[in-house]
Every structure is written in C-alpha cells, then in structure tokens.
Design a protein around this nucleic acid. Structure first.
Lengths: 149, 149
DNA sequence: GCTCATTGTTACCTATACTCACAATGAACG
DNA sequence: CGTTCATTGTGAGTATAGGTAACAATGAGC
C-alpha cells in the first residue's frame, strides 16, 4: 500500500499470515482426523524433544503459556490416549507427561500434516528465501528471550 | 535446534512469534485503555482505508473472516461510539460502517500503540532486515491471494 | 514445627472466529 | 404480477486458545 508505516505494517502482516497458518494447519489436521487441535499438536511435538518426561511446568515454559493452559491441552491428549500423566516418585507435587506408543505413532502422522501445511504456506518462496525468513524469525524470537534475561 | 525440518519449523516460528505479537499488542492497547481489542483495532484501521463507508461484507472480505465475525467486532466498536451503522439508501439489505469523529480520534491514539508495539517486537532487527522481512511476508500473503484467483 | 514457595488444578472469564439457520430484501424470469 | 433464487446481515450455538484467581497438596528453609 501507500502507508508510510512499515513497522505497523509488519505486525499487521505477521498477524494476517498467522491467521492463515492457523486455518491451513487446522484443515490439514482435520483431514487426518486424529482428533488433535493445532495447540495439542504443538505440545505433542514439544514433548518429543525431551529426553525424559517433562513436568507440566516445563511444558508451560517451553510453550510460553501459563501452566493452566497446559492442563487443558494434556487433558485432551490424554483422553485420546496420546500422552500419560505419571507421578514423579521423588516429588509428589509434580506430574510428568509421557508420550504413549499411540502418541508416538500419531506424531509420525502429524509430521506429514505439518509438512503439507508448511508447503502450502511457503509455496511462494524459494528455498533461499525460506532460509532468510527462518533466520529473521529466529532473530526476533531469540531477541525477545534475550531481553527477558 | 537440530531438527532437519526447516519447513515445519518455519510455521512453528511464525505461530510462536504471532502469539507474542498478540500479547504485546494487547498489552499496549490495554495501556491506552481505549476499550479496543486487537481485532477491533484492525477493523478500525481497515475502515480508514476506504474512501466511502464500506459494507459489512466488504470488511469481511478485506479482513479475511466470515461476515458473522464482523458483526461482533462492529457491535463492540459501536458500543464505544467509534463507528456507526448507517443504512444504505439504495439497498436496504446493506449496512455501511462509518467512522465517527471519536473513532478517528481513537485511531490516532491507536497508531501510537501500534508503533510502540511494533518497535518492541522488531527491536532485534536492523532497518534493512525489517525491509527484507516485510518483502518476504508480502510475498507469502500475495502468493496466497494469487492462488485463489 | 512454622512459614513460605512450588506445583498442578478447579472454576470462571475473554477474544476470536466458525457453522447453521433465518428474516429481510432485491433480482430474474415466466 | 408472483414465484423462485441470491444477497446481506445477524441470532444462536460451538470450538479453540488463552488468561486470572483461589486452593490444596507438598516440599524446603529456618
């Protein structure tokens, strides 16, 4: 457009794009019919990065949401048998979240959904442009984290 | 990380960043205490781009949401006196949405909120990097639009 | 042993956007 | 003219994602 306001526009673009990412992601997830919402998918994916089952609080921090939000997500995933709450033997306050075999299987299928969704979104960009975009987004994300410390 | 999955990661980064944009935007809006939510702010801004008052349907298309969603947003803005619903004399089905003087005033204040929010988000990037990011995001957005036609 | 911090959860609220159904209106056409 | 069909906005209800506040159970420090 002709607005002399690149900064405001950037936020606008980001939001607009993400609404789209959400929609596309949701559609690809629904197509697989696994009963997994985008946020649950994200938690599942995050879970796979841990060596040993993390605590709820760990997940909350990693996902950048309040602990209460994690409870709801885990509830849904547990109802579908994708994760399991296991009590920590050394500290009875904490519950650790474990991927079930079914959860691992689902994760594999989700990877396909994620890939096709990403491909659909990023289609207009060349490989090189995608790399640049990745670096820029990383900078933004890390910048924010650094500020907090 | 070490995940050999740049495409899935990009979507992830985008979503993560936008959650943050949302939070920051919301905080900056609340600070001004204008009773305007992020989505309402976006509608208000969109409204300013029209020469003559658009129809609800126009706004829905521009905002890329279903018409029903616009109703709710306009309800909120109208309750605060920022916009006005005016019947179209030539077609009694359509309602046109008009910015009030107060709405225009609010828009000016919002610009400040938007700028400071954007500055906070984009702080880690140089001017040049911001431009590149803008172009890339634009490409993604336009690519999607082009595909639809 | 008392106080205080940590951990997850119950209960509730908000924002955003969706579908479906519907009433009012306009347009097309026999 | 009237019948049919498309357009336009909205009521009703739902889903997703997140947030706050209060709380009970537990652990840690002194």
């Amino acid at each position: 457009m002709t607005t002399p306001d690149p900064e405001g526009l950037l936020a606008e673009q980001l939001l607009r794009l993400t609404r789209r990412v959400h929609r596309i992601q949701k559609r690809h997830l629904e197509r697989r019919d696994l009963g997994v919402t985008p946020a649950q998918s994200r938690l599942l994916r995050t879970l796979a990065h841990y060596g040993s089952p993390p605590r709820m609080a760990d997940l909350a921090e990693r996902l950048e949401v309040v602990p209460r939000a994690v409870t709801t997500l885990v509830d849904g995933l547990e109802a579908n048998g994708y994760v399991r709450r296991v009590p920590d033997p050394t500290n009875r306050r904490v519950t650790r979240i474990e991927l079930t075999d079914e959860g691992r299987e689902t994760l594999r299928e989700l990877r396909g959904a994620r890939r096709s969704a990403a491909e659909e979104i990023l289609a207009p960009l060349t490989e090189k442009e995608r790399q640049v975009l990745g670096v820029l987004l990383d900078t933004l994300i890390d910048g924010e984290v650094a500020k907090r410390c």
